[in-house]
Nucleic acid binder design. Structure first.
Length: 206
DNA sequence: CAGCACTTTCCTGTTT
DNA sequence: GAAACAGGAAAGTGCT
């Protein structure tokens, strides 16, 4: 997978008005880029979509000078999404500097999140959302700017959560109960659609 | 060991 | 009927 963008132009508010140019350092092949991304870095998923900071952008066109013209989908805004994210749940656990590199730091700095060093369920979900290994195949934003997301592969995600906690008895039934506990504290807010949740005012980092 | 935060487990009932 | 959703209640886990 190729890194396709200039960090200095991709960092903040790419977006809705003007097309942004991205240079392909290795050249753009005639047949485009297909198939699954093979690394944690952002890049072109297929001829129509590029990921930046874990978020999808439509590729409008590419020109002879190896520039891509992209637009964010209308509901998407670029936030402070980390560039470096872990690939797998067990890798998250094994990575000692997870808190420094994988997650945006406000997630771990707010008051209600620093009781202990364990990752919380909502942080785990946010991590999956910022990782193109799982977004959009397992979990995806349904409204990026409002923090609304949908779980697509409930069994797999529950299993990964269990893996994370060394608990092979975890199910979506039980994981979703833990998610509903968040409603009271406004870490998540309910959305009246199956498998759709939304980050609330007491969560951050998204 | 105690107390606390955060689940996890179980359960009954409801909704999609 | 299966899969999700809703919460109450109690037990378990990891930390300070």
């Amino acid at each position: 997978m190729l890194n396709m963008y200039h960090p200095e132009s991709a960092d903040s508010t790419v977006c809705t008005e003007e097309p942004i140019d991205f240079l392909n350092d290795d050249g753009v092949s005639e047949d485009g880029y297909h198939g699954e991304p093979s690394s944690t870095t952002d890049g072109i998923v297929n001829e129509n979509v590029i990921y930046l900071h874990g978020l999808p952008y439509d590729i409008l066109s590419k020109d002879e000078s190896k520039h891509l013209h992209i637009y964010a989908k209308s509901e998407i805004e670029l936030g402070p999404i980390p560039k470096v994210v872990p690939l797998y749940a067990n890798e998250i656990k094994a990575t000692e500097d997870f808190q420094k590199t994988a997650m945006h730091k406000p997630i771990f700095s707010s008051k209600q999140n620093r009781q202990n060093g364990n990752i919380r369920l909502w942080q785990f979900l946010l991590c999956l959302l910022t990782n193109l290994k799982f977004n959009p195949s397992h979990i995806k934003w349904t409204n990026r700017s409002s923090g609304e997301f949908k779980i697509l592969r409930s069994k797999d995600i529950a299993h990964m959560w269990g893996e994370m906690k060394n608990n092979n008895r975890m199910t979506y039934e039980k994981m979703s109960r833990a998610m509903r506990n968040y409603y009271k504290d406004k870490i998540l807010t309910p959305v009246p659609q199956r498998l759709v949740y939304k980050f609330g005012p007491m969560s951050d980092g998204w």
